[in-house]
């Protein structure tokens, strides 16, 4: 689709908010310690650029001064234990949540400066695979995949049918087009949701915990699909997950997040070679380490009121 043509992207950007770029540039310089070189051309610039991101939920700090880049055409994985705000990160990137501080640029556009209409326009170029699939339960698989197309394009019914069937073919569910979501197995539902996420030929897909609750066979299928879609269609993929092995097997670049900060980043090989205790515990799945098995609290002896413990 013409949408991914660099020239087209540039013109869309100029139309949407050239100002946003100019104003965020000083902010980026001010963060100082950024060692990454200024991109020479837009084609090599990261698709998503996060600088100094802070986000709190009540008094709980989710992110603190986070810098993160998502390169075009690559599969970037963000890993971390449950509760580190990985899903929150995706919601921030797609503009469903607003950060407390910092900037998020997607394709050169500052998310925070967008109004609803601009945000919606940008989201048409993003697909998201939700942890719970988020299929519309009162529509069949076909209608679910057709939904964004009916909403945002003027395709004729016959053309629409072709596009939907091609998308379903890509995920291997062409035969299940008339099934209702409630009748799908977990793996099939995920693939149906994936077909819907790519219906509008997005520039980027965000996967929220795609491997959770999948059996080994559908896990294998998904891993292959994510890689295949990324390479065949020239997409940019963000995978958020805590499944270390599966994620490491498809990612081109890894970020490991804990307690609101990036504690490791690099290619899977680089991260695997990392020898910080914390990274080792997470990557190798050790039961005890810097992250303790026990939730913080008084000692067992104190809790049980054993004599002599006080």
């Amino acid at each position: 689709m013409a949408r991914r043509d660099p020239a087209d992207v540039r013109s869309a950007r100029e139309g949407d908010g050239p100002k946003a770029q100019g104003t965020t540039a000083p902010g980026r310089a001010a963060t100082g310690g950024d060692s990454r070189a200024e991109p020479s051309s837009w084609a090599s610039a990261p698709l998503v650029r996060i600088r100094g991101l802070s986000y709190r939920r009540g008094s709980l700090v989710i992110f603190e001064d986070l810098d993160l880049d998502i390169q075009r055409g690559a599969v970037t994985a963000v890993m971390g234990p449950s509760g580190t705000g990985k899903t929150t990160l995706l919601k921030l990137i797609t503009g469903q949540l607003r950060p407390d501080a910092g900037s998020i640029e997607v394709d050169g556009l500052d998310i925070q400066r967008m109004d609803k209409a601009q945000l919606f326009k940008l989201r048409r170029r993003m697909g998201m695979l939700f942890q719970s699939n988020a299929l519309l339960t009162d529509l069949s698989v076909f209608d679910n995949v057709a939904y964004p197309l009916r909403e945002h394009t003027d395709l004729s019914p016959s053309m629409l049918r072709k596009v939907v069937l091609l998308k379903l073919e890509a995920v291997g569910l062409r035969g299940a087009r008339d099934v209702m979501p409630s009748a799908l197995s977990g793996g099939m539902a995920r693939r149906a949701a994936l077909a819907r996420a790519i219906a509008l030929d997005p520039m980027m897909i965000l996967y929220d915990e795609p491997f959770t609750g999948q059996d080994p066979i559908s896990m294998g299928m998904l891993i292959a699909l994510i890689r295949q879609l990324n390479d065949a269609a020239g997409l940019t993929s963000i995978v958020v997950s805590h499944d270390v092995r599966e994620t490491a097997s498809i990612a081109d670049y890894l970020y490991v997040i804990s307690q609101g900060r990036i504690i490791a980043e690099g290619t899977p090989a680089q991260v695997a070679a990392e020898d910080s205790e914390w990274v080792r515990q997470f990557m190798d799945g050790l039961p005890d380490g810097p992250v303790h098995f026990h939730y913080p609290g008084p000692s067992l002896a104190q809790d049980l009121r054993l004599r002599g413990a006080a």
Binding site: K91, R123, S132, N133, A134, L136, E151
Partner: peptide, 17 residues
């Protein structure tokens, strides 16, 4: 339930209010 199963977020991500 639509909210709990992320269907509302899903619509939002499909650029549908």
């Amino acid at each position: 339930l639509m909210k709990a199963t992320e269907q509302l977020s899903g619509l939002e991500m499909m650029a549908v209010d």
